[in-house]
Amino acid sequence: MGSARDEILGRIRAVERPESPPAPRDYDRVRHADDPVALLAERIADYRATVYRAAARELPYRIAERLDGRGTIAAPADVPGEWRVPGVSWLTDDPPLGVSDLEEADGVLSGCAVAIAETGTIVLDAGRAQGRRVLTLVPDYHLCVVHADQIVVSVPEAIERLDPAGPLTFISGPSATSDIELDRVEGVHGPRTLEVLLAA
C-alpha cells in the first residue's frame, strides 16, 4: 500500500474532470459610500458595539475619556506614546505578558490594520499597535482605534489590502452567539465589550 498522500492524489487524477473556465468576477469589487466613516460607525453600532468619533488631534483626550477609571490596561509595545494616557496603569507586552497577566487586566487598547465600512468589521494583522493575538482576546474590554485612511467600503477592498503572511483576526462587534434559538446574544468568550474610536 502506498502512502495516503499518493493514494489520494492518485484517486483524484484517475477522475476525468472537465476544464473549468476562469471564475467570473463581475461582482462589485469596489463599492461607493458617500461617507465611509459614517457607514462604518453605523454598521459597527448595529452589532451593539459602541462607536465614538474623535478629531485626529484630540485622540489622546478621547482615549483617556474611554479608559478613565478602568484600572489596568494592556497594550502592545508599539502603540503610539500619546495613546498611553495618564489615569490608568499600563501593562505593556514587552517582555511578553503571560495569559494570567491578561486575565488580570481590565482591558486592552489597540489599533487595527483595516476596517470594512459595509460590514462593520475591524481587521487586526498583528502589525503596528496591534500586537499578538492573545492581547486582544483575553481581556474582557477592547478599545480599538481606527484611522480614516484604514477604512475601505467593501470586503474585496479589504482582502486586497491585507497581507496573508501574518495572523489575521476579523472582528465584527463583541463576542456573540446565535446558538440559542438562532437569536444573536452578545458576550461569550471574546471581549464582551468592544468600543471603537474613529479618528477621522
Partner: peptide, 30 residues
C-alpha cells in the same frame, strides 16, 4: 473576497460573523 461575503450572510444571516481567524503555518511568538 467572495466567500467571506457568501458564507456569513447565508449561515447566520449577518453582514459578517463576529470573528474570523486566518493564519499561515506558525507565527513565532504568537
Amino acid at each position: 473576497e467572495v466567500f467571506l461575503q457568501l458564507l456569513p450572510r447565508s449561515s447566520t444571516a449577518e453582514r459578517m460573523n463576529p470573528y474570523t481567524s486566518i493564519w499561515s503555518g506558525v507565527t513565532p511568538g504568537d
